[in-house]
Structure formats: structure tokens, C-alpha cells
């Protein structure tokens, strides 16, 4: 977050100086940037945070050895979390549920919405595999009671069961449920819940830092002309258009 505040601080300085649009040359800008001190350790932490949150265990391990940055979470738990995520992504929901419960039995007990979504995904997978009878039985035994407990679950359940009513599911109004994106949605919901249970942020910090950079630039655009970063992947400073 410190990078961002340094930026805001600059912004405020520029604001007080300029009544009309101020021009800042690349040279001036780079000089100002050179005055900004960012500690290497903090940069490393940001990178580690990204690797850990996104689940790149091997990269995180290598980065730890190379940079000496300690991850804020036990790397072994990342492997477990990734295994859960992967199980959902490949449609193996029962396996995923068992793994989550091994990891922390509280997650699904205290998160009825997530539990319902996993069960719903299991139903979707049964329907996908053409196991109609099993799907019906499962919907009745496992999902119907959840629908009784919660109005919005009931609506989602009805939508899912509707898949069984169509001959050609590829062309029905609820076909999106069979999409791979539905699996990804469920997987990321599980991922976020596990991260939260480990006192970890659900999202890496790096993307939000970039978002703040873009926002700050947009603010600054109204007050000044300056070397802008247009391509985030290269972070090249473009010459200000005079």
C-alpha cells in the first residue's frame, strides 16, 4: 500500500501547485520517481503474496530460497488448497468436499452458501454424466432440505433441476450451468473460503495496486500532463503529449 500513498502524496503536491494543467517533463518526472524510496523487501513481499494467493507453490518455494522472503502462510497448505481447487475444476466434487473437510471442518459447516454451491456442482456433474436417476435422488435427498432452509437456494436448485427437463441441454435457457465457467466459479469460491479461513486475503495485492495506479493516473490527467504508464505490462513511461 505504501507505493500507492507515495503516489497520492505526489498527486496532492501537483494539485496544490497547479491551477491550470501543469506540464511535467519526463526528466522532471524521473527525478521525482528517483526520490521515491521503496524497500526491496516490500517489493518481494508483494511478489510472494501474489504467488501464494494464486497458488504457485513451486515458484513460491524457489522465490523464498532466492530472495529470503518468508511466505505469510504455510506453503504446504497451498498444495492442499490447490488440490481442492483442481478437484472442483475437473468435476470431482465429492473428492473436493472431502479434502476441504480434512483441511478445516469448519469451512463448510459455517458457510451454507458455499456448501450449497458445491452440492449444486455435484448435481450438475451427475446430470452432465447422464446419471439421471442418481441426480434426481441426490437432488431430493441432499439439496431439497437446503432449499427449504433458504429461499435463494431453492431458486438455484430449481434452475439446476431444470437441466433434466431438456432433451438438448446445449440449447436450453440454463445451459450456462454446464459451462466450464460454472466449475471455475465454484472452484474460486472454495479457494476464497479456504484462504479466508487461513486469515489470508482472498485476492492478491498486486492487481489492486495496479488498479490504484490506473485510478490515480486518471485523477492526475485532469490536473497535469505528465509521462503516463499506458502499457501496464512494460510499465514504460510515455512522453507527455504537448
Amino acid at each position: 500500500m505504501s507505493l500507492f500513498w507515495i503516489f497520492i502524496h505526489h498527486l496532492a503536491e501537483v494539485q496544490t501547485m497547479a491551477t491550470s494543467k501543469k506540464l511535467i517533463t519526463k526528466q522532471e518526472w524521473e527525478k521525482k520517481l528517483a526520490d521515491v524510496k521503496v524497500r526491496k523487501e516490500e517489493m518481494n513481499k508483494l511478489v510472494m503474496n501474489f504467488l501464494v494467493t494464486e497458488g504457485y507453490v513451486e515458484a513460491a518455494e524457489k522465490f523464498r530460497l532466492e530472495s529470503g522472503t518468508e511466505p505469510d502462510i504455510d506453503l504446504a497448505t497451498i498444495t492442499d488448497r490447490m488440490a481442492v481447487k483442481k478437484a472442483v475444476q475437473s468435476g470431482n466434487v465429492v473428492d473436493a468436499i472431502e479434502k476441504v473437510n480434512d483441511l478445516n471442518p469448519e469451512i463448510l459447516d459455517t458457510n451454507p452458501q458455499l456448501f450449497f454451491h458445491l452440492q449444486q456442482q455435484r448435481l450438475i456433474e451427475l446430470i452432465r454424466d447422464g446419471k439421471v436417476e442418481e441426480a434426481l435422488e441426490f437432488a431430493q435427498e441432499e439439496l431439497a432440505p437446503r432449499g427449504e432452509e433458504n429461499q435463494s437456494f431453492l431458486e438455484e436448485l430449481e434452475r439446476t433441476v431444470a437441466l433434466l427437463a431438456f432433451e438438448d441441454v446445449t440449447n436450453c435457457p440454463v445451459r450456462d450451468l454446464l459451462d466450464i465457467s460454472q466449475r471455475l466459479k465454484t472452484a474460486s469460491e472454495v479457494n476464497a473460503a479456504i484462504l479466508t479461513s487461513q486469515s489470508h486475503e482472498k485476492d492478491p495485492k498486486l492487481p489492486s495496486l495496479l488498479k490504484m495506479l490506473v485510478w490515480a493516473q486518471n485523477q492526475l490527467d485532469e490536473k497535469a500532463t505528465y509521462p503516463r504508464i499506458n502499457d501496464l505490462s512494460t510499465a514504460a513511461l510515455e512522453d507527455p503529449a504537448v
Binding site: 468436499i97 472431502e98 473437510n101 463448510l108 459447516d109 456448501f115 432440505p145
Partner: peptide, 13 residues
């Protein structure tokens, strides 16, 4: 035991 655990977690019924 594992089986029992996985059956009851999240499932009031």
C-alpha cells in the same frame, strides 16, 4: 469416521 464426518458437515438433515 471420515465417512460420517463428510456426510454431516454442512448438512443439518
Amino acid at each position: 469416521l471420515r465417512d460420517l464426518k463428510n456426510q454431516i458437515i454442512g448438512n443439518r438433515t
